[in-house]
């Protein structure tokens, strides 16, 4: 028998964690002064969205979405759609990170640093 708080955490707990993760990511993007850290925070934020979708796709007592012979009941398999969607979202996040790294490489070459203050100072001198 689950107590109230355990029941609550089992029902909705993961939503709090994902939205906390999302806020950490957004906070990091705003507050960090280092562009590399900003890029990492951006990844954290995207992971939050992916975890959110995956938690939407869960079903109690269900198995992975690969059909097993003799088991045709729809309740026996977790939702395949959210998983398929998140594969696409993961690729998008990978692509964005790749472009971000390419941009950072050039910024580091030109400005000699990835700290925001240094970059702004060098930019004003240009």
């Amino acid at each position: 028998m689950m107590t109230g708080i355990e029941q609550f955490l089992a029902d909705k707990g993961i939503y709090y964690l994902t939205f906390l993760l999302l806020s950490f990511g957004v906070y990091g993007i705003i507050a960090c002064k280092n562009y590399m850290k900003k890029l990492i925070c951006m990844n954290i934020m995207q992971v939050a969205a992916i975890v959110f979708f995956l938690s939407l796709g869960q079903k109690k007592g269900a198995t992975i979405p690969v059909l097993i012979e003799g088991l045709t009941n729809a309740d026996s398999y977790i939702n395949p759609l959210t998983h398929a969607l998140m594969l696409t979202a993961i690729v998008v996040s990978l692509g964005t990170t790749g472009v971000g790294l390419a941009l950072l490489t050039r910024i580091r070459e030109k400005f000699g640093s990835v700290e925001e203050d240094d970059i702004i100072r060098r930019q004003n001198k240009l």
Binding site: L22, V26, I29, Y35, K38, L39, M42, M45, Q46, A48, A49, V92, T96, V99, G100, L103, L104, R106, I107, K110, F111, I119, Q123, L126
Partner: peptide, 19 residues
């Protein structure tokens, strides 16, 4: 060079928007 920094900042903001 300035475009590069603008693009990076836009990328961060744009990814927040996409998410």
């Amino acid at each position: 060079n300035r475009g590069m920094v603008a693009a990076f900042r836009y990328m961060l903001v744009g990814t927040i928007a996409g998410t």
